[in-house]
Design a binder for these strands. Structure first.
Lengths: 344, 344
DNA sequence: TTGAAAGCGATACCAC
DNA sequence: GTGGTATCGCTTTCAA
């Protein structure tokens, strides 16, 4: 019934070490005000008893929990589709290694949950990492006005009240389009992401910039708004080709959409890359499993997690919460779906 | 600098309600020994002040943390590859909804970490979910002898000391092979998983059972041991075909290996499914993105997580830890990679 | 049924 | 430097 083993307390360590609680506490917290010999004695006692501090007792007085919450808007297909989530967690977890800060996971599904989550956060974690691309998420606003340190994954669309870390969506998309242009493509279409998500908006912006840089005109009709899912890729390709049969390249804002695109192209007898070159975004595992291999923009998701923790720990350490941004570089990985078009 | 807002305490609630701490505590903990009118007054006061109990203080006296740890052996390609991890977390998280038990994530990478992790678990969580297919993981042994409730994801190979939840790997594999046999295939090879992981062992066992049920002979030479990764699928297919050119079906113990297999087949000019039918295991997203679509054994990973939490909460509630097993059904999802072989 | 009071195990302030 | 001690917010006897 009883969950915990009887663990030694500060008191007992003190007794063994022949000193006081206070001193033992100082040793544990690496206070400089302890003489070397005493410290040594205490450390021996600690080792001997296998003492570890009771977190609850400590939290009670310090008013800190030594844990950070990773809050994920459960609705996020983008987050849960593909290795994104696993990579993020891995990055965060890696960065937390050796800090004795623990990671608490919170998925808030419904909007009803929000107040519960919010309440929980306020009293049970020292900091928050928020993953929510729904640009209007009220939680963002609440965190911004609240007193608890928070860092966002991804640029918030409206508020810039909170520090955030994001990958260079614009740059990645621009690079992808530039690459297609260099290949000699002149009718470059795009299946873009939802325009109420920043990643969708930014990748579209990058697409425009890429066209501009290549001296190609922007054409509304060459844009299809998908939802990052595979089906919307198929629909997108279908619609784009119906509208403009001369499309010779498609930039899809996600790998899943890119794959959908390639499937539709195949269905229509268009060869990839010979007739239509395709580039995706994410560089997920599946990009390597397609036939032909999918060129894609790589984003360092693990690094994203690592950087978020770094920022957060800074804030928790007392840095003034200047809303600042960290943008991680993205780069294009070229595979067969966009290779040898010009050459071939 | 200060992380916490000034939150109301029991004391304050008591004052507002015109009663004592003790009574308020009873109300909060749903003790029956409180008169209706008093209870009502107290509840009003709680609502008015927006009171929520301080977890640390509570833990300190109850010696329970109200949190469970999800421990994942970081090395697990199988766990982090593909949606497995995300699905599992989602399932666990769903099951925890409304329990006020929080989920703490622990990835232990190196073996050195293990003692740290072990120590942490002992003092900071009320229960443990362990995901580790390394059959000899010492953590299993330690948890089995320890006093903290634990549930395993997947059948442990040697010890049956702990309750576990697993998917029906054997049945799924058997079904896959049976399906291939029904299609008329008679030389059914397999690219199996590592034989030091239970999932690998069980899926191979299922393969054998499937052959037997179909009246087909088992042949060592038709078995290649992969590592669940895509590359090993390619190697496997290559080696199997080199050994036996007449292979007319391949059952791969993971989707990634199945895809590798299909790539190698294509490279050799073997058509799927016409020349060689292929079935994978996992039924992950990528199974739907291949050309042709990959038939695969579906496993309910989310349900796995849900069931694990259910077991764990039972144990934490005081059930005697009878090492028992829960096996979740798997089922085959047929797609093009194994369709119309007999018919066509 | 209700209230007073004794801890739970740490931290941190205050003397020495 | 070191030791005593009040304190954190809650649960839980023990009396009343």
């Amino acid at each position: 019934m009883d969950v915990q083993e009887k663990r030694p307390t500060l008191e007992q360590v003190a007794e063994v070490a022949g000193t006081s609680r206070a001193t033992v506490s100082r040793v544990i917290n690496h206070s400089p005000k302890v003489s070397a010999p005493v410290r040594e004695t205490v450390e021996r006692a600690i080792a001997q008893l296998g003492y570890t501090p009771n977190r609850a007792a400590r939290s009670l007085v310090t008013r800190r929990t030594n844990s950070v919450g990773l809050v994920v808007a459960e609705s996020e297909q983008r987050v849960f589709g593909e290795p994104f989530f696993a990579d993020l967690v891995r990055g965060v977890s890696t960065a937390l290694d050796g800090t004795d800060v623990q990671l608490v996971l919170l998925l808030n599904r419904s909007d009803q949950d929000r107040s519960r989550v919010q309440e929980f956060l306020a009293s049970h974690v020292d900091g928050v990492l928020l993953v929510s691309s729904r640009t209007e998420d009220p939680l963002i606003e609440q965190l911004a006005t609240g007193s608890i340190p928070a860092v966002l994954a991804g640029r918030p669309l409206h508020t810039a009240q909170l520090p955030y870390v994001d990958v260079d969506n614009v740059g990645g998309a621009r690079q992808a389009v530039g690459h297609l242009a260099e290949l000699g493509c002149t009718r470059i279409a795009t299946v873009t992401g939802p325009q109420d998500m920043v990643a969708g908006v930014d990748r579209l912006a990058g697409y425009r910039q890429g066209l501009e840089a290549a001296g190609l005109p922007f054409d509304d009709e060459l844009v299809f708004e998908g939802d990052f899912g595979g089906d919307s890729g198929e629909q997108g390709a279908a619609q784009l080709l119906d509208r403009h049969g001369d499309v010779d390249a498609i930039f899809a804002a996600s790998d899943l959409m890119a794959i959908g695109t390639m499937q539709e192209l195949k269905r229509r007898g268009r060869r990839v890359p010979d007739d239509v070159a395709v580039v995706g975004f994410d560089d997920s595992v599946i990009a390597t499993t397609t036939q032909p291999g999918l060129s894609s923009v790589h984003q360092a998701v693990g690094e994203l997690g690592r950087q978020m923790i770094e920022r957060l720990l800074e804030l928790m350490g007392g840095s003034t919460p200047v809303p600042n941004a960290t943008i991680l570089p993205t780069h294009l990985v070229v595979r067969e779906s966009s290779r040898g078009v010009a050459e071939g």
